[in-house]
């Protein structure tokens, strides 16, 4: 499949839509700071092919031989 164009940076409109969906309030004079923060954090994700990065597996691990805490089976 040919390379698709990179997704654009987080826009203020997209940020406002996310804020409305989350049911929170962020003052107008902080929107740009939050847009920068999220934009920087999202940039590595948006530059990647999500089918190629590693899966989050195994979701459950256990050591049958030793003591363990949390999820597992005897």
């Amino acid at each position: 499949m040919p390379d698709e164009p990179k997704r654009p940076e987080l826009t203020l409109d997209e940020l406002r839509a996310r804020i409305a969906a989350a049911g929170i309030t962020i003052p107008e004079n902080r929107l740009n700071m939050v847009r920068k923060l999220l934009g920087e954090a999202l940039a590595p994700l948006r530059s990647l092919d999500s089918r190629k990065i590693r899966p989050l597996e195994p979701a459950v691990t256990f050591d049958a031989a030793g003591p363990h805490v949390g999820v597992g089976h005897e």
């Binding site: 940020l15 996310r18 804020i19 989350a22 049911g23 929170i24 962020i26 003052p27 902080r30 700071m33 939050v34 923060l37 999220l38 954090a41 999202l42 590595p44 994700l45 990647l48 999500s50 990065i53 590693r54 899966p55 989050l56």
Partner: peptide, 26 residues
């Protein structure tokens, strides 16, 4: 200023959090 930075966590979607953890594994 902390409040807005923490609130920005509410704007991260489920799939974005998962992708960030996948990226971390990478």
């Amino acid at each position: 200023m902390l409040r807005e930075r923490m609130l920005s966590g509410a704007l991260v979607s489920g799939h974005e959090y998962v992708q960030a953890q996948r990226l971390r594994m990478q």
